[in-house]
Write a protein that binds this DNA or RNA. Structure first.
Length: 542
DNA sequence: TTGCAGTCAATATC
DNA sequence: GATATTGACTGCAA
């Protein structure tokens, strides 16, 4: 609590008492890398000699491997901290160099992690956590991250991808060896890196590792070695298993996370993964469009109607929101680089990437929805009225939330009130109380087959334009709104486009973009709604 | 308590 | 076989 308070409402130095300054000194030292982890004498004793107590904390850090990071497996990676306490001013500098320059010390592979492939088991206890940036970076990775200068996450991932593909190195190997992440995470990270400033300290870690790895002149070599070793181990295992007539072990080499319980038991214990049917996803997406933050009641209903567990619905919304947010990030990046100096290569390339994701129903629900027709003509209609409609949420409707949303989002879209499915499409709704909303039942799952797309788009469709409009509060912050006043819906599109550097034309068909925007809008709206319902005076920084 | 970030890991897709 | 997608989970912050 104290920390939270201090971080959010720091007092000016001059107003702090000696004691009050202590935490700041600690923070500064920590930022400078002079304060390692260790047990802080919380309260008490350290009184007077603030610095004294603080300095005493250095020790733990300098001793060899830092903990959390390095896996116990092999101690090899824990080289003693070569560089001890850096002076505050220097620390940052050296760190910068460390991260930005060739870093021979990054001993990514070998000992750092999965020990000999031949004995994969070792790793399973701690599947993740590998790597050890050892060598001169005896600083814990967290410290490196904390002190790291802003990194170009997009550029880093781009380079990593290049190196990996050029050398025919897989994500799995790279992830497990260098990042301590699983293949899926790596894939995700490489495909959709978040901008540095949007990352938490933890989220920055993989990027710092990647940067360090890129700086390592022997990076590829090391990874290749690992690859070879894995292969060797695999063959070895295969042989032995065959000869032992053992049920074949999972083919994956290296880190064998599947170890532990016998495969069979494991299998039985595992609960099957839920796989949502396309219709279910559609329904959820539609529900999302209506209400990105459904109330528990709505969730219940959705779950019931879709015959899903409420937790599944909840998770779905969480994941969806979060993924959409991420998509937006990339778009921002792309737009940014695009906009800038012709942003050479990358941008274009990326755009390609994005699109795909959006099309699929990956996360962009929103998108999926609106997509379609270039010209924006979505076939929206399709009102499904359909039966299947998961009636989403009657209940919700009342939720204050909607109003705001509609108030904003909808306006644009709808010139057509009421649209078929009643999805909120509505005209600009008045104030919060807006119970008015038409209950937009959860979209019908059964969207008319007709042009699926179209169908899907239905809802969104109606809002397509809106999507664009969705105005991104968040974004706006990033980009000066070139335009329109917050409430000028009509103009939104253009402003967004400019924000994203999307040519009008392109924008029209660039569904993905719009979708994201729509999603973003939803989120913003939700907040607004919340605020509205609370009647809290809120200052929005758009 | 709620929402989110970051991940894992199963599954789908290429 | 490698990579992409995605439901679920953990931990943290507000």
């Amino acid at each position: 609590g104290s920390v939270s308070d201090m971080l959010s409402r720091p007092k000016p130095w001059s107003k702090l008492t000696q004691k009050g300054r202590e935490p700041f000194i600690r923070m500064q030292l920590w930022l400078n890398g002079e304060l390692g982890q260790g047990v802080l004498p919380v309260q008490g004793q350290q009184q007077g000699p603030v610095l004294h107590s603080v300095t005493s904390l250095q020790d733990p850090l300098q001793q060899g491997c830092v903990s959390s990071e390095s896996t116990p497996k092999t101690s090899a990676s824990c080289s003693p901290a070569p560089e001890s306490p850096m002076s505050s001013s220097e620390s940052v500098k050296s760190l910068t160099e460390l991260v930005q320059q060739p870093c021979p010390a990054i001993e990514t592979s070998k000992e750092g992690k999965p020990p000999e492939p031949s004995d994969p088991p070792a790793s399973d206890s701690q599947p993740t956590t590998p790597l050890p940036l050892s060598g001169h970076s005896a600083l814990s990775i967290q410290e490196l991250v904390a002190m790291s200068p802003e990194l170009d996450t997009y550029g880093i991932t781009k380079r990593v991808k290049e190196v990996l593909t050029d050398n025919n190195l897989g994500q799995r190997l790279f992830g497990e060896t260098i990042l301590g992440l699983t293949q899926g995470s790596v894939s995700d990270l490489l495909a959709r890196p978040k901008p540095w400033h949007k990352l938490s300290l933890k989220g920055r870690e993989p990027f710092v590792r990647m940067q360090l790895w890129l700086n390592d002149p022997n990076n590829v070599e090391k990874l290749m070695d690992m690859k070879r070793m894995e292969k060797k181990a695999y063959m070895k295992r295969r042989h032995s298993s065959v000869s032992d007539s053992q049920p074949c072990e999972p083919p994956s080499v290296g880190i064998d996370y599947s170890q532990g319980a016998s495969p069979q038991t494991q299998h039985q214990l595992k609960k099957p993964r839920v796989v949502l049917a396309p219709e279910e996803k559609e329904a959820l997406k539609r529900a999302y469009q209506q209400k990105p933050y459904p109330s528990p009641k709505t969730i219940e209903e959705l779950a019931t109607q879709l015959n899903l567990k409420t937790s599944t619905v909840i998770n779905w919304f969480h994941n969806y929101r979060s993924r959409i947010r991420r998509e937006l990030f990339i778009e921002e990046i792309q737009a940014g680089s695009q906009g800038q100096a012709g942003a050479s290569d990358s941008p274009s390339a990326r755009s390609g990437r994005i699109a795909p994701s959006s099309e699929g129903d990956s996360c962009d629900g929103v998108e999926a929805a609106d997509v379609e027709e270039p010209g924006g003509t979505t076939v929206a209609t399709k009102s499904q009225g359909g039966p299947a409609e998961v009636a989403a949420a009657p209940a919700d409707q009342e939720e204050a939330t909607q109003p705001a949303e509609k108030a904003k989002a909808q306006p644009l879209s709808s010139a057509t009130p009421g649209q078929d499915n009643g999805e909120d499409v509505g005209q600009p709704r008045p104030p919060p109380e807006g119970l008015t909303d038409t209950p937009a039942p959860v979209p019908n799952l059964a969207a008319p087959a007709a042009g699926e797309d179209a169908a899907t788009s239905a809802t969104a469709a109606t809002e397509v334009p809106g999507a664009a409009r969705a105005g991104p509060a968040e974004r706006s912050s990033a980009l000066p709104s070139t335009s329109a006043p917050a409430n000028a819906p009509a103009r939104r599109p253009s402003s967004l486009q400019s924000l994203f550097g999307l040519p009008e034309a392109a924008g029209a068909r660039d569904n993905p973009v719009r979708k994201k925007k729509a999603a973003n809008l939803n989120s913003i709206i939700h907040r607004l709604e919340k605020a509205a319902s609370r009647e809290e005076p809120i200052e929005w920084e758009f």
